[in-house]
Amino acid sequence: MHILVFVKQVPDASQVRVNYETGTLIREGVPAILNPFEEHAVEEAVRLKDEHGGKVTVLTMGPPQASEALKQCLARGADKAYLLSDRIFAGSDTLATSYALYEGARKIIELEGDVDLFFAGKQAIDGDTAQTGPGIATRFDLPLVTYLIKINEINLEEKYVVATRLTEFGQETVKVPIPVFFTVEESLNVLSHSPLPYLIKAEKAKIELLSGENVNLDKQQCGLKHSPTMVKKAFTPEKRQRGATLSGTLDEVADQIASKIAPFLKKVS
């Protein structure tokens, strides 16, 4: 079984401040970490590899220093790490990023063989968009299971996975064919402590480099120029008003609610 995990190096959100004039994040002097959701994605991939056999490959797009995040993945037990790095990717939004990662993944499939399970975090803690993972899955035309909280069963012979995901209202358990794309929640697993031999191996490991040179890319879909996302304004949303507390018997409370929503119902009709 081949598992490919998409990861991102992000600034440690607990130490980031916002520049309200430009609407951007002040990243200077903030330590870079592996996106926490993806730490759990790698943990899960390695756990599944240990159980079912196979290998785990990780891919990130970013500047050369993003290889530190890849080393963390190797320390967690991933087998091989690829860094997609090129100036042409600078300033990419989620559309351009998911395109570049899609092409990077296609190259990895060419080099390492078909992928059965794709993983990414549910979102990155810097942008919080939750768009890149789904963007890649769509380009591959793969079934997408977002907000994964549990892998219940993997059947490699009949090629399906039974998995549980979080929804706005509760949980949903789905059966999906392999290959499949997951974006994961932190509650998926508990991170284990990496053994020293893994850490040492990771420290000495070679990170494979991918760039515009060795990946087949349509440059018209890369970088800032081809990123249609515009940040109009960044602001802290207003705090929601605390809801009113109603008291009385059930009937009385129901009456109070009805009278409160009645004006809105009229407007709609």
């Binding site: 402590h193 990496s194 053994p195 020293l196 031999p197 850490l199 040492i200």
Partner: peptide, 19 residues
């Protein structure tokens, strides 16, 4: 030991990690 800490400073030929 399972995490490898007891192997630090021991030669590989005795089951260590070197360092």
């Amino acid at each position: 030991a399972d995490l490898g800490f007891t192997s630090v400073g021991v030669d590989e030929s005795y089951g260590g990690l070197g360092m």
